[in-house]
Amino acid sequence: MDCKILGARFPSVQRKGQSEIMEYILMVVFIVAAIIAIIIFLTWWNLQQFQMDAFKNRQDRVVGIGQYIMGDYMFTNGDSVFDDAKLTAINASMSCDDLQKILGTNWYVKIKALDMAGEKPCKWNDYPDCNVWSICTYKENAKDRLGQNFPVNVYRKVSDKTALGVLYVEVYS
């Protein structure tokens, strides 16, 4: 009788032990999965943050180049007023490399005075009957372009007048 009872109990104890082990393994698997999920989420979150930072940095670079140019007396006469003769002289005397040493690579700037219809690039021989100055070259096939317009003033040296203008700054990779 006892043996029978024991014989009947023994398989049920074994099954219970096995199920507890399974239960235990399952719990561990869930915990590990939860930890992995948290780690994946945190890593993803960090990557998103880095990507956002990269975008912010590019946007910031556009503003930085614009502000630097507006504040440098090589381009302006102070108070962010561009001097058309200085801009023409920059195009005639400086290479893009010279400015890239100051402002880094992969950028392009265009200044347009709005006192003339259309766009007439300012070369040495066209001065002062022109209204567009491009600093460094515009690259058609450049990727990841990001640009911004800034309202500016352009001082017309020969006519001694100040015109409204637009400064366009673009960065690319």
Binding site: M74, D83, K86, T88, A89, I90, M94, I102, P128, K157
Partner: peptide, 21 residues
């Protein structure tokens, strides 16, 4: 130093450019 040189080049060209006008 490099900026003085660049600014001098630009201002020199500017002076020549506007001297006639």
């Amino acid at each position: 130093m490099p900026r003085i040189s660049l600014a001098a080049q630009v201002m020199s060209k500017r002076s020549v450019l506007i001297a006639g006008d």
